[in-house]
Design a protein around this nucleic acid. Structure first.
Length: 507
RNA sequence: GGGUGACUAGCGCAACGGUAGCGCAUCGGACUCUUAAUCCGCUGGUUCUGGGUUCGAAUCCCAGGUCACCCA
């Protein structure tokens, strides 16, 4: 029975211990240079075959990603977060007081091991900038085979279940998640500079709300009550506005108990922003500003965002009320343009016949009223066709229980959604602040819930009481951050911008 | 929820009804300028799981599992 690689590596760790070398030491490493710093300091110096004449001793640390052994000379590739540097290790060059002897380096080190190396910058005969190693020690022994350096890990299941392998074997993936972090930082600082305060509202909620979705349920033992993981922070953020905050946001995780596909993960990151004394066009403008600011952390030219073979243009060039925006069209205009049915001048019976004549399949809910029908037709037939950034505005009141009635159009609310590449990126509206009207909306939602709509909004008395205390004119918006990061990192699946996506547990 | 496809050594793949094989890695050996190092040699398998058909199944059939993609 032969040993597998994991057993071999465990034995190597044991052999280090036998030699009184801890394969997992705890001392901090006095790093003087990252791989990048070595390139910056010596990159345009040193002739081939030369060693830094100043003899400056550098200390680097990182992970071995390749080992090339040619007898009394061994080359290791050392990778840290910033890049790669070759270590040149000559038998005669390793000092007596090195933690690992030349023989131990050859025999006991493998790809994946973390090490620290002390030596002098040099350039090999073949011209590669390297570190001529004098002392080398182990920081952490890797005990399973390191992903193939040349091929990397490409099995999507391994990449997602064991993201550390994906990251360790593929610098481009590490870069994607660095960008994610930078984008989120930029969004936070943009809003903070604009006077928005970041809130931390409950994730465990007794009544979930703020969106149309099914929640995850959990149980609090001491209170002996079921609690829901939030599907949105909306209602609490508006209560903060009722209390006197004028500009608030929350950037964090929300949870929706629904299927998993390339644009849906059960937990995802949302940004919600509320601004007092603003209306939906003001907050639509803020959506543009936030997304453009985020895009500028990645691209200098926002008119040429590459996404899955297409090019997205984020330049606001559509004239609306004297301002430049992304394309704006009302939902009825959109349906008229893309489907050819004019919902502004039609009754339910005629509309139903027209929709059915086009072979569009409808749910019971969608057959109930002109509003549900309009939204259903838009959602199925128009949204998937909106490739360049497009705001669709003025939604039916039936599908918008938290939005304020339209100032001019009966049966509609002041609401928008942003679509890019047929996908919803943002949603916002002038917030309903009339407590009596809010109660009526919740009651209508309850009626739908009893009629079988599992995503209908539940009644929330605490929220109505907050509105009764008074909420100023106000508008708010939400952006799906994971989808935005997909767009800005040209990634096809949400599961590859979420570092550890939800997967069915093994066994 | 429905459809399609994938699953074989640590990794990447082949064998398509007739003895499970190749490359890389691991392991042993050689080598002071390699960089997917090279050269020589040796290991390594519940072919996702269970059942069926067959003289014989990785291969065909049925059920299940995981994943991916598409549709609702």
């Amino acid at each position: 029975m032969s040993r597998n690689e994991a057993e071999v590596r465990a034995e190597k760790a044991e052999e280090l211990r036998q030699a009184h070398i801890n394969p997992y030491p705890s001392q901090s490493v006095p790093r003087t240079h990252t791989t990048q710093a070595v390139v910056e300091e010596f990159g345009d110096r040193l002739e081939s075959g030369m060693v830094d004449p100043a003899g400056k001793v550098l200390t680097l640390c990182g992970r071995i990603t390749a080992k090339r052994d040619s007898g009394n000379l061994v080359f290791l590739d050392l990778r840290d977060e910033f890049g790669r540097l070759q270590l040149k290790i000559e038998k005669k060059g390793v000092k007596e007081d090195s933690v690992l002897s030349f023989a131990q380096i050859k025999k006991l080190l493998d790809e994946g091991d973390f090490i620290s190396a002390e030596g002098i910058a040099c350039r090999t005969n073949k011209g590669e900038l390297s570190l001529q190693v004098e002392r080398l020690s182990i920081l952490a022994k890797a005990q399973i085979p390191f992903p193939d350096v040349y091929y990397g890990v490409h099995d999507v299941e391994v990449c997602r279940r064991h993201r550390e392998m994906h990251l360790a074997s593929n610098p481009a993936i590490l870069q994607r998640f660095k960008l994610r972090s930078q984008i989120i930082f930029q969004i936070r600082s943009f809003l903070t500079e604009r006077g928005f305060y970041e809130m931390e509202t409950p994730i465990l909620q007794a009544i979930y709300g703020g969106a149309a979705a099914r929640p995850f349920v959990t149980h609090h033992n001491a209170l002996d009550v079921d609690l829901y993981l939030r599907i949105a922070p909306e209602l609490y953020l508006k209560r903060a506005i009722c209390g006197g905050f004028e500009r608030v946001f929350e950037l964090g995780r929300v949870f929706r108990n629904e299927g998993i596909d390339s644009t849906h993960n059960p937990e995802f990151t949302s940004l919600e922003v509320y601004q007092a004394y603003a209306d939906y066009i003001d907050i639509l403008t803020l959506v543009e500003e936030v997304i453009i600011h985020a895009a500028k952390t990645v691209y200098t030219d926002i008119s040429q965002i590459p996404y899955q073979g297409k090019t997205i243009d984020l330049t606001p060039s559509y004239e609306y009320n004297g301002q430049k925006h992304w394309r704006i069209l009302t939902m009825t205009a959109a349906v008229k343009e893309y489907v050819g049915i004019d919902f502004d001048n039609i009754d339910l019976e005629t509309a139903l016949a027209a929709v059915k004549a086009k072979g569009i399949h409808l749910s019971k809910l969608e057959e109930q009223s002109l509003g549900y029908l309009l939204y259903g037709v838009f959602d199925k037939c128009v949204a998937p066709q909106l490739e360049q950034p497009t705001f669709v505005i003025d939604f039916p009141v039936e599908v918008s229980p938290l939005a304020k009635q339209h100032r001019a159009k009966e049966g509609f609310v002041e609401r928008f959604e942003l679509f890019i590449q047929g996908m919803e990126y943002a949603n916002g509206f002038s917030e309903l602040n009339d407590p009596q009207e809010q109660r009526r909306r919740f009651e209508q939602q309850l009626a739908q819930k009893y009629a079988g709509d599992e995503e209908a909004h539940p009644m929330d008395e605490d929220f109505i009481q907050a509105l009764a205390l008074g909420m100023p004119t106000c508008a708010g918006m939400g952006i799906g951050i994971d989808r935005l990061i997909m767009l800005l990192t040209d990634t096809a699946s949400i599961r590859d911008v979420v570092m550890f996506p939800t997967m069915r547990p093994r066994q």
